[in-house]
């Protein structure tokens, strides 16, 4: 198992790269979801004031 983790001595480069990549992708997804929720609440608040 740790031979796998060692990545032929390049563990210090392979794992951070993959970690960074998935962090970025996850970050994009999370930001998109939060952005949508913020837009929905803003719209709901406006429509409530309207009523």
């Amino acid at each position: 198992m740790n031979a796998f983790l060692d990545m032929g001595g390049y563990a210090a480069f392979v794992w951070p790269t993959w970690g960074l990549s998935f962090a970025a992708l996850a970050g994009l997804v999370v930001h998109a979801v939060l952005e949508r929720r913020a837009a929905q609440t803003a719209l709901r608040r406006l429509e409530e004031d309207e009523a």
């Binding site: 994009l28 998109a32 952005e35 949508r36 837009a39 803003a42 719209l43 406006l46 429509e47 309207e50």
Partner: peptide, 22 residues
Amino acid sequence: LAGWLILYRLRSQALRRRVRTL
């Protein structure tokens, strides 16, 4: 994934533009 992000954000942007117009 990029396709998902684009479509998803397009829908929330439509909401944002309606908020601004209102």
